[in-house]
Design a protein around this nucleic acid. Structure first.
Length: 722
DNA sequence: TTCAACCACTT
DNA sequence: ACCCTTGGTTGAA
């Protein structure tokens, strides 16, 4: 018997058990096998259960009567169906559920790594010790307390592969390869030579992580060799699909998963830009889902996995489908209950020395602090519910990372990874709240969702009262933050007593986002007097800009428009006070004017004018043809596959059809719809400038007009000054 | 010119 | 496999 320590990097079903890959501390990549059974449950009327039992008897399963706990309905009599080969669970389950559809099934679709964790205490990306005989793992257990749980410094061998151009836009002719310090290109032609060379890279470098651009959709499907580390396996392919999440349709290209090593396609990974490899690894470990799964799934899937794991570890059954329906409510009750977060109407205008105070992870903190969980509703003395149990360690880990970040020097090498990991955890926290109210969540109930928003509004109102008692003016509140001001208060320190008072009252952690030198709450474009709660921008004392809701934040704004808007903001951001802003307004106007001249003179690259928008349906299903829908139709007519959820990239052109998809070749400068882009730019400029026109005092306005810069402004802006 | 339907995005 | 709303565009009256 030999004992090894290391990181568990892969688990999947193998013959009569599981296959494990251990990144062993001596540097070996150990391939181990371990016997491992999987159990799922069926419950329902005893006559049906007896029939199911009869049907299953004689198959290669173990059957047992067991009483087990359902989160909502309590103890249930079940048949426990145990399968020797965990890979067989889906088959056995689909067969029996087809024959007995009215039974309730539990634990049947729990991902294998979660079962493994519940049984052994060892999860993916955990440190562990394995006792082996040859490649047979006899025992595995976690290595706790041996090292800081915050550390996630796996000594991974990473192989990066990316084509020289986007395969959707043209035919790549070379592949850029990076591993360790080596960096070079391989020509794709002749194909045979290319495959031989690439295979040699896999063989000699033996990567743990293959990080690609377009690997799912382009590179891996065309390989003529097996890129797996477990050579007995074929790669796992998943078809492309469109799915609905975040209130929108998303498109995910086909996927290629590997065995024994990971493949992540940066271009086919959810939120990858947000937190990178470090974030994906963090989420994979925190949720217990595999790295390759987590990289391609939304945080919602991660939250589901975490809740499943909590359930498994606390002997609660995991229902296969959601069984909770939203209880019937009168319209009046519904209106009262489901009001979402607190939204306050700020006064349109610009303000100085304003502090923005945020509740840290407000909704999750409320869930934990007030024990909000679908099964604890209306039970004030209930023990910790499933959702708070799931969330508490998540909150704590994020807090620990945050604390470590504060201690580190900003240029410390570890900072980047820690920030990415904190961001990755934040996404899980955010989504967990949404999941409480999600109609298909296994452990959700809309009423618990509403309880959270009710409490959040209450907390904000309490904070407002406290602030006002202390002499502050509350300018704005939005879901989990408030903007406060008091004359003579201008440093973060000045607001400390207020923050302490709020924490004492609410028991929810808050953080100072910063004190603005000045901040502007922008008006609605439809009606200049009406504010939009989440349209604001300003500059903090340290010179950093913050902006929300304006064109810059939208991903369908052309780069050029966003760039000019940012330049204007940067310009205004140099002002230390509102009075100074007025000195910078002429320069901002000049930036706008120059940009428009650049456009007319053809000095703006069509690439920077590209609009990228997601379509939510197939091109032919549109009743009203938006520019994006038109571009999608053009693409489809040229024979390209266009699916709902896919991003469409195009530029506005003159005449019909008014758009040109990027995929259809380079854009002729002369065809660009200059007027349309001018309007887009003017609107973005207005977003930034209007608020100053609307809110400056009469005296300041008169002052502006006296200065001769006004004529350089465009018509729209002159108009808005009036 | 007005208005309703439609559509994508944000937090 | 996440809740909802708002701003902007289109196209018909």
């Amino acid at each position: 018997m030999t004992a090894y320590t290391g990181w568990l990097i892969d688990i999947y079903a193998g013959q009569g058990g599981v296959s494990l890959w251990l990144l062993e501390d001596g540097g070996q990549r150990l391939f181990l096998h371990m016997p491992f059974e999987a159990t799922f449950y069926a419950a329902g009327p005893s006559s049906l259960l007896r029939a199911a039992w009869k049907r299953l008897r004689g198959q290669a399963v173990k059957l047992e009567r067991q009483t087990r706990r359902d989160l909502f309905s309590g103890d249930r009599d079940t048949i426990a169906i145990t399968v020797q080969d965990p890979g067989e669970v889906p088959h056995v389950f689909s067969e029996i559920s087809r024959e007995f559809p009215s039974l309730d099934y539990y634990d049947a679709d729990v991902p294998l790594p979660l079962r493994f964790y519940a049984r052994t205490g060892v999860g993916l990306l955990h440190r562990c010790q394995v006792e082996c005989e040859g490649n047979l793992a006899r025992d595995i257990h976690p290595l706790a307390g041996e090292q800081d749980p915050l550390e996630m410094n796996l000594p991974l061998r990473v192989l990066e592969l990316s084509p020289n151009i986007d395969p959707a836009l043209g035919e790549p002719d070379s592949l850029k390869i990076k591993h360790g310090r080596a960096e070079y290109s391989l020509r794709l032609q002749p194909q045979r030579a290319f495959m031989v060379s690439l295979k040699a890279v896999f063989d000699t470098y033996d990567p743990d992580l293959v990080l690609t651009d377009f690997g799912d959709t382009w590179l891996l499907p065309m390989l003529t060799f097996n890129p797996n580390r477990d050579a007995s396996r074929e790669v796992l392919r998943r078809k492309a699909n469109s799915y609905f999440t975040y209130g929108q349709v998303l498109f995910r290209g086909q996927q290629v998963h590997l065995f024994g090593r990971w493949h992540i396609d940066r271009k086919n990974a959810v939120l990858f830009r947000e937190y990178g490899v470090d974030g994906v690894l963090q989420q994979a470990r925190t949720t217990g889902l595999g790295v390759q799964e987590m990289a391609r799934k939304s945080p919602g899937a991660g939250i589901t996995a975490m809740q499943m794991r909590t359930a498994l570890c606390t002997q609660v059954l995991v229902p296969v489908i959601k069984q909770q329906a939203e209880s019937a409510k009168s319209l009046k009750e519904l209106v009262a209950a489901d009001r979402g977060g607190m939204i306050y109407q700020p006064l349109v205008g610009v303000y100085e020395n304003v502090a923005q105070i945020d509740f840290a992870s407000m909704y999750p903190s409320i869930m934990v602090e007030y024990n909000i969980s679908p099964e604890t509703l209306g039970k004030p003395d209930a023990p910790d519910g499933l959702v708070p149990q799931t969330l508490r360690p998540l909150l704590e880990e994020r807090l620990a990372i945050k604390r470590q970040l504060i201690e580190l020097h900003p240029r410390d090498q570890r900072v980047k990874a820690l920030k990415a990991r904190a961001a990755a955890l934040k996404w899980l926290l955010v989504v967990c709240f949404g999941y409480l109210g999600y109609k298909n969540a296994r452990f959700g109930k809309i009423e618990s969702h509403e309880a959270v928003t009710n409490i959040s509004r209450e907390l904000l109102l309490q904070s407002k009262e406290i602030a006002e008692e202390m002499g502050f003016t509350v300018l704005h509140m939005y879901v989990d933050c408030l903007f406060v001001q008091q004359s003579g208060y201008r440093t973060a320190k000045d607001f400390t007593p207020l923050m302490e008072a709020i924490v004492e009252k609410t028991h929810v952690a808050i953080a100072m986002d910063g004190v603005y030198r000045w901040v502007a709450f922008a008006p609605s474009r439809m009606d200049g007097r009406i504010p939009v709660p989440n349209r604001y921008f300003g500059v903090f004392q340290d010179g950093e800009l913050k902006y929300r809701g304006i064109e810059l934040r939208r991903h369908d704004t052309p780069l050029w428009v966003a760039g000019v808007q940012l330049a204007m903001l940067n310009c205004l951001g140099q002002a230390n006070s509102l009075l100074q802003v007025k000195q910078y307004l002429p320069e901002a106007a000049r930036i706008l004017r120059r940009a428009k001249a650049d456009l007319r003179a053809g000095r703006v690259s069509p690439d920077d004018l590209m609009v990228r928008q997601r379509i939510s349906k197939a091109p032919q299903d549109y009743r009203s043809l938006s520019p994006t829908a038109r571009a999608a139709q053009v693409l489809q007519q040229s024979g390209r596959q266009v699916s709902p959820g896919q991003n469409i990239r195009f530029v506005y052109t003159r005449g019909r059809p008014g758009v040109q998809p990027l995929e259809l070749g380079p854009v002729d400068q002369r065809h660009l719809d200059v007027d349309r882009y001018t309007v887009l730019l003017e609107r973005a400029a207005e977003s930034v400038l209007d608020v100053f026109g609307a809110s400056m005092t009469e005296r300041l306005l008169a002052d502006y007009i006296q200065h001769s810069w006004l004529p350089v402004l465009n018509k729209t802006y002159e108009f808005s000054l009036k």
